[in-house]
């Protein structure tokens, strides 16, 4: 419990014209913790992810990342070079649409290898061995290593994106609706895979989702957002089983039972 947060944000404000995308939002994430940001479209959850990952600058507020050396990096002051370095070493991104996170014209092995090469791997055999190992871990037959991901199914593309992201062992992974456009059966497999990998690697994850089932399965902690504000947060099962805020009660009671 003495360990410090890996990500710390406070006083975040962001407006798009008259719409408040973020209104006095604060958030802390600790190493090894999966935090889900839950909300409907327009709740500000994606804006929050973008601000936390340095993609969009807030109108006010601060975001700090504590790097592997223990140095506190002010995300919106550090500069693009520092952020890019983080993005290809200590951070990972899993996008809803695998096309945003993959190079569809580059082989599966090349996709996984790119991050290794970006951090200086220069041994072709070593890169291929690592790529094969990661394809196995995400349940893609290593025999397909030299195939192009544009010929893969949506679920496979998403698993490839996860392999590509995790191959350099990031410490903090941002995920934006990672199971978004997938069939239900494919979703279940992917969720289980993410759950297992996250636990194995002890990753900190910030997950944006509108899907309560996804949040319950993956997240240790929930942040419920509405109209740019955090309306409720806490332990996942506490928030979902005993929701306090009117909006959370509405969300939870609106889930269709199977």
């Amino acid at each position: 419990m003495s360990d410090a947060p890996i990500l710390e944000a406070s006083g975040l404000h962001l407006r798009f014209g008259s719409v408040a995308a973020l209104d006095e939002v604060a958030l802390r994430v600790w190493p090894g913790e999966v935090v889900a940001i839950l909300g409907e479209s327009g709740s500000g959850k994606t804006s929050l992810l973008r601000v936390l990952s340095g993609t969009v600058a807030p109108d006010a507020g601060e975001v700090f990342y504590r790097d592997a050396a223990g140095v506190l990096v002010p995300v919106h002051v550090a500069g693009e070079a520092a952020l890019r370095r983080l993005a290809r070493t200590e951070w990972g991104f899993v996008h809803q649409n695998p096309r945003d996170g993959l190079r569809l014209g580059v082989s599966a092995g090349g996709n996984v290898g790119e991050r290794l090469m970006a951090v200086g791997a220069r041994h072709y055999g070593g890169i291929r061995a690592a790529a094969a190992e990661w394809l196995r871990r995400v349940e893609i037959d290593p025999a397909r290593m030299d195939d192009l991901p544009r010929d893969f199914s949506g679920g496979m593309q998403q698993r490839l994106q996860i392999a590509r992201t995790l191959v350099t062992r990031p410490r903090l992974v941002f995920m934006d609706e990672p199971t978004g456009g997938l069939d239900v059966s494919v979703q279940a497999r992917l969720l289980d895979l993410i759950r297992a990998l996250v636990a194995d690697l002890g990753l900190a994850v910030l997950l944006v989702t509108h899907d309560i089932a996804v949040a319950r399965l993956l997240a240790h902690r929930l942040v419920v957002m509405r109209r740019g504000r955090v309306v409720e947060h806490g332990l996942t099962d506490r928030v979902l089983d005993d929701p306090q805020h009117e909006y959370t009660q509405l969300l939870v009671s609106s889930v269709l039972a199977a």
């Binding site: 190079r103 580059v106 082989s107 092995g109 090349g110 290898g113 790119e114 090469m117 970006a118 220069r122 072709y124 890169i127 291929r128 290593m145 030299d146």
Partner: peptide, 10 residues
Amino acid sequence: HVKLYEDIAR
């Protein structure tokens, strides 16, 4: 390097 990797792989 991805380009070089792809050449060797193919």
